[in-house]
Design a protein around this nucleic acid. Structure first.
Lengths: 228, 228
DNA sequence: GTTGAATCGACTGTATCCAAAGATGAAGGC
DNA sequence: GCCTTCATCTTTGGATACAGTCGATTCAAC
């Protein structure tokens, strides 16, 4: 950005606010804006080549999504990714993911299984030479696909919590290739249940998948002090 | 509002944006702004005595909460309360309420049961001379209490979906005193499980409580055509 | 060493201007 | 008669400038 908006982009059609929110969101996800760092309106608007008017609306959106916290008269800062916060986010994710999986299973659309199958293939591709960054992305992709396939608009809006837990808190919740392999296996079990049209099983498996992560993280809770 | 902001309100301390969002939100909840109606920026800012800048941020918040839909270059309109949409919202609510109840039960704080007990008493008070409006409010209060007692910030942010289903869609999901009495009984069962510290039971009961409503509404799905 | 005032940086809110996008309706062509 | 097209009008979208307010820091005074 920073200049392409001025004369280029003939037919964007997407509101600038959404675009801004997306760009900032992505930069938080990719750690370009570190957790806990301050986002200055003046600086951001200059950096993105926009005025503060749409920027403030974008920040308001991200605040609502839980990605940043707007402190009145002080500014906005990227959410800090300490372990207790992460665990609380995962608690919500467990039931969200469970519900989404159940709805997809109950819709019983063969295309769902195929799409999710390809997503799992993509995940496997990040294992052989272990690519943590690509794995994280493919993991997010899988869960976002499930969410969107549920075709429940209220559920789709919860998408932020998935990327929050899986990407923003990545340094906290870092996994190795062994844990990744286990996670992919659990994904496949969920997809099998979806293919079978077994809603309750899909929900149980998807939820257990996240709760396994919770248990794993909670075991570290005493060992590692909350990183500042 | 409309004049008290200009010279009065010496130490509000809460940002205007939040105040605006709260006022508009409340007016949607209380049907002052009907579902499906357009919210004009110019008119709203005049009506509330504020400029368009903070108003637009407030609208952006409400859009994110799902209360209104901002159509680019066209304006914002209050969400339309048709039955399919309501059912989708309830699907999410079922797992949200279930999780909240479980967390409260697991926290095992005696004060929780007492607070919720009083909330139920308040609900019973709206039955004898049947007061639909008061009942709806007391019903929302009960569920909001559970949400807040969970002490999970991510869960608390889901508060909007409770009021959306219970208040905005009230005309669609209208209940009579008989259904209300049943609902209060189910509330008491949830509180009993919370008092007993039985997390899984609390979750199962709270979730079944909402799902009973879903089943009830779904039976109307063919009978009543979506009201415009 | 603590208290308190001054200052500075940053956000908050207002007002105004202009551009762009939809909606509307009338005129004109088929 | 119906459809298209063009002009217009309303409303939102975005930029800019300016007046407040809040918080944190600093520095002097006690």
């Amino acid at each position: 950005m920073s200049s392409e908006r001025t004369q280029a982009s003939p037919a964007t059609s997407v509101p600038l606010v959404e675009e801004l929110a997306a760009v900032i969101r992505e930069r938080i996800y990719t750690q370009r804006y570190a957790t806990g760092s301050w986002l200055r309106q003046e600086q951001l608007s200059a950096e993105l080549g926009v005025s503060r008017t749409p920027l403030r609306e974008a920040l308001r959106i991200l605040d609502r999504e839980g990605l940043i916290q707007v402190h009145p008269s002080q500014g906005a800062r990227v959410i800090t990714g300490d372990l207790p916060t992460l665990l609380k986010a995962y608690e919500l994710r467990a039931v969200i993911d469970g519900l989404a999986a159940r709805l997809v299973a109950e819709r019983n659309d063969p295309a769902s299984g195929r799409l999710l199958g390809r997503a799992i293939e993509a995940q496997l591709g990040t294992l052989d030479p272990w690519e943590p960054r690509e794995y994280t992305q493919s993991n997010v992709d899988f869960h976002e696909h499930v969410l969107h396939l549920s075709e429940n608009e209220f559920l789709v809006k919860q998408s932020a919590i998935i990327r929050l837990t899986a990407q923003v808190f990545a340094p906290v919740a870092l996994v190795g290739p062994d844990a990744a392999r286990r996670a992919i296996g659990e994904h496949r079990a969920v997809v099998d249940a979806i293919d079978a049209g077994d809603g309750p099983a899909a929900e149980r498996l998807a939820r257990a998948h996240i709760e396994a992560t919770i248990t794993q993280l909670r075991s570290r809770e005493d060992a590692a002090p909350p990183a500042e």
